[in-house]
Amino acid sequence: MTPQYAGLRTLHNDNDDVVVLGFPCNQFGNQEPGTDAEILEFATSQFDVNFPMFSKIEVNGANTAPLYELLKEAQPGDGDSADITWNFEKFLVDKAGNVIKRYAPSTTPEEIATDLDQFR
């Protein structure tokens, strides 16, 4: 799913009213083991990421970042738990801060782009 970085960059660049925010997490298969600087270097050198990338966080469990507690409470998903299922699970938040949709990790940024008009 790492190639989604490129699609997220395009979503960020091609829509003036969209800001993509990246929150690396190493809770899924040890896929983001590096430091914040190493993760940023990888994303920028391999996928030309130019959207904001934040420090690595936890999205599930006792140390869940407050942002992800809010996101999961607002959009708990379809499973037995509101937990994030894998890296690249995505949330659409409107300009007022309302969490309006949650996307599975396999949902591509291109698929999200088709939803944007209905939420503008």
Score class of each variant (00 low, 15 high):
Lys90Arg: 07
Pro109Met: 01
Phe42Ala: 15
Phe91Pro: 07
Arg120Phe: 08
Arg9Phe: 03
Arg120His: 13
Ile84Asn: 03
Arg102Met: 06
Asn63Lys: 15
Glu58Met: 05
Gln75Pro: 00
Pro105His: 13
Asp48His: 12
Gly77Ser: 09
Thr107Met: 09
Thr108Asp: 03
Tyr5Phe: 15
Asn26Tyr: 05
Leu92Gly: 10
Asp17Gly: 10
Ala6Tyr: 04
Phe54Thr: 10
Val19Pro: 00
Ile84Gly: 00
Ala37Phe: 05
Leu67Gly: 01
Val20Ile: 11
Lys72Asp: 04
Glu111Gly: 03
Thr35Met: 11
Gln118Thr: 14
Leu116Lys: 05
Asn13Pro: 00
Pro3Thr: 06
Thr44Met: 10
Gly34Glu: 11
Arg120Asn: 14
Val93Ser: 07
Ser45Ala: 14
Ala65Pro: 01
Phe88Asp: 08
Cys25Asp: 08
His12Glu: 08
Phe119Tyr: 15
Tyr103Ile: 04
Gly34Gln: 11
Ala65Trp: 09
Gly77Leu: 11
Asp16Cys: 02
Ser45His: 07
Glu110Ala: 15
Ile112Asn: 03
Glu69Asn: 11
Val19Ala: 07
Ala43Glu: 08
Gln31Glu: 15
Ala96Trp: 11
Asn30Tyr: 07
Lys72His: 01
Thr107Arg: 11
Pro3Met: 12
Val18Thr: 10
Asp78Trp: 07
Gly77Asp: 01
Glu58Thr: 12
Lys101Met: 12
Asp117Asn: 13
